[in-house]
């Protein structure tokens, strides 16, 4: 399948400071892509180039096989980290204005906004001023304004910051729904745990460089340390013959390091033979946080 977004060896400098350093990646249609990295890693600088807000110093970006140009912003929905709305404007007027700027006709925009307000069960908000809304409510409006023109590519920069758990779930389920409908989504955040549940493909960025990218599951497998956690019904008496090395034992919970994945069954049979009941047995995959820290260390070493 052709890629919808192709970033090729892109760099961005601010004076002596290199915000984005030779980054490349490809996005396939319908992908949910996690752009990860600590604050100041260059995520926003990279996004600003994709949305044509800033110019590209080196390299090039293609959207739908075409070099990004003044038509690109209309096909992208971008929710910046620094976001806001016109406080004195009415919800309806505000959404209408932003949708029209994205190229929708007034009639089209009206119908689409109405269906979104219906979806969020807030269709009586049309004449409310943004000022009257709570922060969470404003975020809903902000989200609608980002997606109302049905963008092919949706870029969300820290979309959950400032959201309560209920609204977080609401937006999350909307993100999934849009993905199912074929929207490609870039999800940029410094909170790794948010991405673990959502994204398939990720890219880790640090100090302007892409230090790791690929399928999230593959990356985790690649970084796994063959650690398994087993929880038993009772404290075992004798563990001297247990296959693998015991890393840690707290009462009836044991973390075991195995040289080979295939040995996992031997562990189970070791306990079942002794008549000890097993409550749970699972492989410990590294968290993205751990992977990030490890790969930063590798790069710097």
């Amino acid at each position: 399948m052709n890629s919808i977004l192709s970033v090729q060896q892109v760099s961005k400098h601010y004076g002596d400071y290199t915000a984005v350093n030779n980054i490349s990646f490809e996005l396939k249609p319908g992908q949910l892509f996690g752009l990860l990295g600590p604050n100041g890693a260059g995520k926003t600088s990279l996004i600003r180039m994709m949305t044509t807000i800033t110019s590209i110093d080196e390299g090039s970006i293609f959207f739908n096989q075409e070099k990004i140009n003044s038509d690109t912003p209309g096909l992208i929905g971008y929710m910046p980290e620094e976001r806001g709305l016109y406080k004195k404007m009415k919800v309806g007027d505000q959404l209408l204005y932003l949708a029209q700027l994205k190229g929708l006709s007034k009639k089209d925009a009206k119908a689409k906004i109405q269906s979104w307000l219906d979806r969020f069960e807030i269709n009586d908000w049309w004449n409310k001023e943004i000022n009257e809304l709570s922060k969470g409510m404003q975020q809903k409006i902000q989200f609608i304004s980002t997606v109302v023109h049905e963008p092919k590519l949706l870029i969300l920069d820290e979309p959950f910051s400032g959201l309560d758990p209920i609204n977080t779930n609401l937006i999350k389920s909307e993100i999934f729904r849009l993905k199912e409908a074929g929207t490609t989504i870039i999800f940029s955040t410094h909170r790794m745990e948010q991405v673990e549940e959502i994204c398939e493909e990720i890219m880790l960025v640090n100090k302007g460089r892409a230090i790791l990218k690929g399928n999230l599951q593959e990356i985790r497998n690649q970084y796994k340390k063959n650690l398994y956690e087993i929880t038993l019904d009772q404290s075992p008496a004798d563990l001297s013959n247990l296959p693998g090395n015991i890393q840690e034992q707290v009462d009836n919970q044991i973390i075991i390091h195995l040289e080979d994945d295939a040995m996992s069954n031997e562990i189970l049979s070791f306990f079942t033979k002794q008549g000890i009941r097993i409550r749970s047995f699972k492989e410990i995959l590294p968290s993205l946080n751990e992977i990030f820290i490890q790969s930063v260390e590798e790069v710097e070493a």
Partner: peptide
């Protein structure tokens, strides 16, 4: 903070 929303369009 509306300005970045605006200049993305």
């Amino acid at each position: 903070r509306i300005v970045e929303v605006m200049i993305s369009s």
